[in-house]
Structure formats: C-alpha cells, structure tokens
C-alpha cells in the first residue's frame, strides 16, 4: 500500500506490469534486440536519474527484483502482470503466461495474471483461450494488435477472427480485455495509432471491459471520443504517467482531458514495470495538483478521492477484488523476501 504524507493508507493495484526476459540469450534475431533496446530507451528517457537501471538488469531481472520493486520498496498491493509473447523475436517468448504464472504462484495474493492470444491462429486461439481459463483461471487478456505472426504484421480488434475469440472470452468470464495501443507497423500507410477498432469492439461486446493501454496516446482525441460514448472503455495511464516528472504541465493537460472525457471511474494506474518502477510514480502522482488555469479550463479536479480511484479502486472493481478483504489478507503476510 501507499502511505500518504499525512498517514492515509491507499490501496494500489498496478494495472500494467511485465516480467520479461529480453536478454541476448533469449533474443531470436535483431528485432528482439531492437525491441528491448527501445524499451530501455523509454526507461532512460523518462525516468528520474536516480531511478535508472543498468542495461543488463533491465534486459532480465529476477523474481526477487520484481517482488522487491513492486511490493517491498514499492507501493503496490497487487499487480496485473500482462503476457506478451513476441515469439517471432524471442526464443522462449518475451513474457509468457507460463513465466508470469510461475512468479504469481511463488507470491500468492499479489498478482493477477492475464493471458494473451492471437486471433490469427484461428481454431488454435479458441483452444488456447479454453486452456488458459482452465489452467490459470484468467480474468483478463492483453491484446497486442501490432504483433507479427508469419507474414501478417498486425490485426484489428474488429476482425471476424477476433470477434469469435471475444465471444468465447465473454462466455468463459474473461471480461477484461487490455489492448496495447501504441506504435504499430501495419497497414503501413495508415495512421499507425488508430483506435477506432476499439470503438466497434466495445459497442459489440458490452459485457467486456476494454482497457486501452497508454490511452491511445498519441491519438488522445480519438480515444476520448470513443471513451465518452462507451462506458465499458477504460484508459490505462502507463507511459502517460512518467511525464509527471519530465513535463508536469503537459501531464496536467493530458490527465485533465482524460478526466473530462473518460472520467475518474474509468482510469487505471499502471507503472509499465520494468520500464518504470511504481514508487516514484505513485509518490509524484499523489503529490500532484492541477495548475489552476488547467483545472478551470476543463472544470475537472484531481482530488485525493479521484487519485485513490485511479490508483486502485477502479481496477479492483473490474477485477472483482474485495479491497477490505484483500487488505486484511495482505496485512497478515509479511512483506519480505526473507521468507523464501
């Protein structure tokens, strides 16, 4: 939990974290190297200097590092660990469900493990969704529409193959669909950050929650327009939040737009660990106040109550986490690595 300067205890669910292996040994080709290099560039570009990691640790960190950074030194109560396979780039995958489930098993009560699938796999994708539900009882998935698969360099959420998968997800109670909306590769001559497929999918699957990671930035205008019409569309703050350090006024403008259009009940904190660590993000977020002119311009405010929702209560709601029960359970478990 995060303890505020005046002693209040804030329940924190980190909505977007990774446990990856991007090490040279696991890289299949130059793309694997360039992919982790790009993540590392994000890390070094937006982290405060004192939070920078060595490259080797960034490429592959241990279960202990993960636990310490999130729960011992960090403010998280729980973390949603996303699966990203990228098997065209990494021999054993980048962070697979199996790898994530193993760390979740070692630290019970701490992780919500999300699966992933690729609708382009057709029948196999459907079988895999069944497998993930039966084996790991997943409640959410991470969709990476820009992922390569053979000759395909991307897909859309409203493709027919994808719809068959989402129908199955809904039937099995996998209700939270996290969608990475960041740089994509194809179709190459289109606006590569397009978020309109979210609009169609969210309209057609009202029983599912659509969490758009990175808020569709840099297509915030399109994303806001979609989110204002669809109550089941959420924004994940990963990548937007680190600007709180390097460009606070810009962050104020972004969060004001999100509060105005998307609303305080539909925004989720996410550190995107290990690109960034949650401690400094949560500290700065809690201390952050909107400049008066921006607050008045949009008529929104980032009050402590709003921050508490964004930091954990919203995610608890869509993942059926009983916050009080979880607080008690965690209080009886020592936050330490020595227990191992």
């Amino acid at each position: 939990m995060y303890k505020t300067p005046d002693g209040k205890e804030i329940f924190v669910i980190d909505g977007h974290i990774h446990f990856w292996d991007g090490s040279p040994e696991n890289q299949r080709n130059v793309h694997g190297k360039q992919f982790i290099d790009c993540f590392y560039a994000y890390h070094t570009a937006l982290s405060p200097k004192e939070q920078l990691w060595e490259k080797a640790k960034f490429e592959k960190y241990s279960e202990d590092d993960l636990y310490r950074d999130l729960f011992v030194d960090g403010p998280d109560d729980m973390a949603i660990v996303q699966s990203t396979y990228l098997k065209d780039f990494y021999k054993n995958g980048f962070n697979t469900l199996e790898r994530n489930a193993a760390v979740a098993e070692r630290f019970p009560d701490r992780f919500i493990v999300n699966g992933s699938f690729d609708p382009r796999d057709g029948e196999k994708a459907l079988e895999y969704i069944h497998f993930m539900k039966e084996t790991y009882d997943i409640k959410g998935v991470k969709m990476y529409t820009a992922e390569w698969n053979g000759s395909s360099k991307g897909w859309r959420l409203d493709d027919p193959d994808a719809y068959r998968c989402f129908e199955l997800c809904e039937k099995l109670g996998i209700r939270n669909i996290h969608v990475h909306k960041g740089p994509t590769i194809l179709p190459l001559n289109k606006d590569a950050f397009d978020v309109h497929d979210v609009d169609n999918a969210a309209t057609d699957f009202q029983g599912l929650n659509w969490i758009v990671e990175h808020c569709g930035l840099p297509r915030l205008d399109d994303f806001c327009w979609i989110a204002v019409q669809e109550t089941n569309v959420y924004g994940g703050l990963a990548v937007a939040l680190p600007f709180i350090h390097s460009r606070p006024r810009y962050f104020a403008e972004v969060i004001s737009e999100l509060l105005f259009w998307v609303g305080e009940d539909n925004l989720l904190f996410g550190s995107d660990y290990a690109i960034w660590t949650p401690q400094w993000l949560v500290e700065k977020f809690w201390a952050f106040e909107l400049p008066e002119d921006i607050r008045e311009e949009r008529g929104v405010d980032l009050t402590p109550a709003v921050k508490e929702k964004i930091l954990g209560l919203n995610a608890a709601r869509i993942y059926d986490v009983d916050v009080e029960a979880k607080r008690s359970a965690l209080a009886s478990t020592p936050v330490t690595l020595a227990a191992e």
């Binding site: 790009c38 560039a41 297509r219 205008d221 937007a240 600007f243 390097s246 972004v254 737009e257």
Partner: peptide, 22 residues
C-alpha cells in the same frame, strides 16, 4: 485544437527524448 496539440506534443517530447537516448 488543444487535443491535437496534446497528441503532437506527446510524440514530440517522446521522440526527442528517445532520440537523444538512442
């Protein structure tokens, strides 16, 4: 227009920082 700028600034700030890092 503000939203247009916010998007473009996001790219701009990120691109400049990523480039100087790379």
């Amino acid at each position: 227009l503000r939203q247009v700028r916010i998007n473009m600034e996001f790219n701009g700030a990120l691109c400049r920082r990523l480039k100087s890092t790379r």
